[in-house]
């Protein structure tokens, strides 16, 4: 009995880690490879989430959408729309240097959040959208969770392989060149702005996909889910702790942070009630402390970026 429960919890943990890993991989493309400080992850997460919600949920009077399309169409739509919205945003904002870009993207994410809360004809406003189908959602509890874990794991695997391939291709080397020395890259004829825009859009589509996976898991989406704390800053911590510039680091960061966040509570719940409640506030503190320690003692993260330093051939 207990073991089944534990396994079931582990499955749930895996699903959320997978979703966060996708967000972290998306951010890794933007920050890790290209050096774009995107502090508006929640915005693209939300766009993906709402796009698939609108495409696949049943019809409701007074709201656009409810097309009851197949779930795969919803996911593709989520990626496409997140990318399409990232394009003009990137076009305007990517001219900024890193910290200004961060401020601009925070603003963009806030605009997206407020638009979602207000534009009821499209997003259901503050009530959100419910009744979204979950693949294999009709199976019993455990089987349904397991099926969803397989889907999420497959998505993470495919995305990881593609991003990894892209990173080792000339494209990845070019992006790192742009990140590390823009002037030199420009002098070699690389189109800096177009490439940065490319990375921004690419990363945003992955964030959109993560939003879509999240929505179908919960069968609902409400504006509370796009809180910057859990949909932007937590992902930054994951990437920095795991190791920015390294895809496995990005995934590992998601595993470590979400596990600490969730599993620590199981342990602290064994404490007397008063302390157990206080321990829940301490969790937030521990995550912050870990970030400080990593930045102080291991700024490159747990799994640092692999730098293939090849000595120049003799002669």
């Amino acid at each position: 009995m207990e073991l089944i429960g534990l396994a079931n919890y582990a499955i749930f943990l895996g699903i959320l880690i997978g979703i966060y890993a996708l967000l972290s991989l998306g951010l890794n493309i933007q920050w890790g490879f290209t050096g774009l400080f995107n502090a508006g992850i929640a915005g693209f997460f939300a766009i993906g989430a709402y796009t698939t919600a609108i495409l696949t949920s049943p019809h409701l009077p007074g709201r656009v959408g409810g097309f009851e399309m197949p779930i795969l169409v919803g996911w593709a739509g989520a990626m496409i729309v997140a990318g399409l919205i990232a394009w003009p945003i990137g076009k305007i904002c990517l001219r900024f240097r890193s910290d200004y870009l961060a401020i601009a993207t925070i603003g963009v994410a806030e605009i997206i959040r407020l638009a979602i809360r207000t534009e009821e004809w499209l997003t259901g406003g503050t009530r959100g959208i419910t009744g979204i189908p979950r693949p294999f959602g009709d199976l019993p509890y455990v089987q349904s969770q397991l099926a969803y874990l397989v889907i999420v794991a497959l998505a993470v695997l495919i995305v990881y392989l593609l991003v990894e391939r892209q990173l080792h291709a000339p494209w990845g080397r070019m992006m790192r060149a742009i990140r590390d020395n823009e002037g030199a890259a420009a002098a070699m004829g690389k189109r800096i702005e177009a490439r940065r825009l490319q990375a921004f859009i690419f990363g945003s589509t992955l964030m959109g996909l993560a939003g879509a996976l999240f929505v179908h898991f919960n069968r609902s989406i409400t504006p509370e889910a796009i809180d910057p704390m859990i949909a932007t800053f937590l992902i930054w911590i994951m990437l920095i702790l795991g190791g920015s510039g390294n895809n496995r680091g990005a995934i590992l960061g998601a595993v470590v942070i979400w596990t600490i966040w969730s599993v620590s509570e199981i342990l602290t719940d064994r404490l007397p009630t008063e302390m157990a409640i206080q321990a829940k506030y301490v969790r937030v503190f521990i995550i912050g402390l870990m970030l400080q320690l990593v930045l102080r003692f291991r700024p490159e993260g747990i799994l640092p970026e692999e730098r293939r330093t090849r000595t120049a051939p003799p002669g």
Partner: peptide
């Protein structure tokens, strides 16, 4: 928020 609510509920139930 939904993320933490599903997490807390999953732990309670399982």
């Amino acid at each position: 928020n939904p993320q933490n609510a599903t997490d807390a509920a999953t732990k309670a139930v399982n």
